[in-house]
């Protein structure tokens, strides 16, 4: 297990450099620079422009800028935003809980519903339910997120008025940030309506963000479950006189979960990509919206380090999933 972890960590180093190089290059490939964007529509005085660029260190050759950047990272310094002059790290910490809350809600939605739908579809293979779930999940997987979000807003928020259109909580409530999780912070609030309001704000974005993972998990669970249900040990479990629920969930799902878990880990990357779109549609004040705005402003440090932080997160989650995979599958755990 230890050497397994060491090998995984060793792989991280080239990945890390790859990410820094990519974000560094990509943001500079977009026409325009931070100074130009800040100056706006007005003609930029070339001299002032040059001065500003020099102050930001953006007049140096690209390789020098890159080495500056890496040097900075080596000191654990993520730099500060060109717009707000606050450190990227503190901005990230500030906004990340919102994204995390949204992502957890989306994954819960996708995981619980996906597993359930997948298991039932497998048990009732070939039934109307099976075909229905598989059809819907294919549609869900193929749906553009932004379009799906807008449709839901139009239907549930605009026509029916059930849920708010955007944001995390109504402006009426003044919530003191303690954990950054609105559903927890509102519990400390004196107003009992605040929690419900926060929940209402969370539902639609969570559904939108969870749709693709839901579809993937449902399909994966179904096929994995179908395979497992044919195994001899399922017959053994039934021959023991165990209840069908125990046979399906304890003996079946436990084994079927192993491949689903891998997919689940891979979905975290997709999820954060989806969060960028979802947060923009729902004006959700998380890191997705933050990054979009930073790209618009050519806020180089925010874009570079924001993406780097997200990438580290995805790597971390996959790392955890790999370990969980080992825990779920004793045949891997005992390997050298």
């Amino acid at each position: 297990m230890l050497s397994f972890i060491a090998r995984r960590v060793g792989l991280l180093i080239p990945t890390f450099f790859g990410i820094t190089l990519l974000t560094f290059a990509l943001i500079r490939l977009i026409p325009g620079d931070p100074v130009e964007v800040m100056m706006g529509e007005r003609r930029v005085d070339p001299e002032m422009h040059a001065q500003a660029m020099e102050r930001l260190g953006l007049n140096k050759p690209l390789y020098a800028q890159y080495f500056d950047y890496i040097g900075q990272l080596a000191h654990g310094n993520l730099g500060e935003s060109l717009r707000t002059r606050t450190s990227v790290w503190s901005e990230f910490l500030n906004l990340f809980p919102a994204t995390l809350e949204l992502s957890i809600a989306a994954l819960l939605f996708a995981g619980v519903l996906g597993l359930l739908a997948g298991v039932i579809a497998a048990l009732k293979r070939g039934s109307l339910f099976d075909h229905g779930v598989m059809g819907i999940s294919l549609a869900g997987y193929s749906m553009p997120i932004f379009w799906w979000g807008l449709i839901l807003i139009m239907f549930f928020s605009v026509s029916l008025g059930w849920t708010p259109v955007s944001g995390r909580i109504d402006l009426l409530y003044d919530i003191e940030p303690r954990t950054g999780f609105m559903l927890i912070d509102t519990l400390y609030s004196d107003d009992p309506g605040a929690w419900l309001d926060a929940l209402k704000h969370l539902i639609l974005p969570a559904i939108v963000l969870g749709t693709i993972p839901l579809a993937v998990i449902a399909r994966m669970t179904r096929s994995s479950m179908l395979e497992v249900l044919r195994e001899d040990y399922i017959r053994t479990a039934r021959a023991k006189g165990l209840s069908p629920v125990r046979v399906v969930f304890v003996h079946g799902l436990r084994n079927a979960l192993i491949p689903v878990l891998t997919v689940f880990g891979l979905q975290v990357g997709t999820l954060l990509a989806g969060a960028v779109l979802t947060e923009t549609i729902f004006s959700w004040p998380g890191i997705g919206k933050w990054l979009i705005e930073a790209i618009g402003a050519r806020d180089y440090p925010v874009v570079q380090n924001g993406i780097l932080l997200i990438a580290c997160l995805v790597i971390l989650v996959n790392f955890v999933v790999d370990i969980l995979y080992g825990l779920a599958n004793p045949r891997i755990r005992h390997q050298r």
Partner: peptide, 20 residues
Amino acid sequence: VVGKDLAMVFQDPMTALNPS
């Protein structure tokens, strides 16, 4: 009754036990 008074041993023991 099944699993208690009436029990069965199957052909391939390597796949008859749950690996997890």
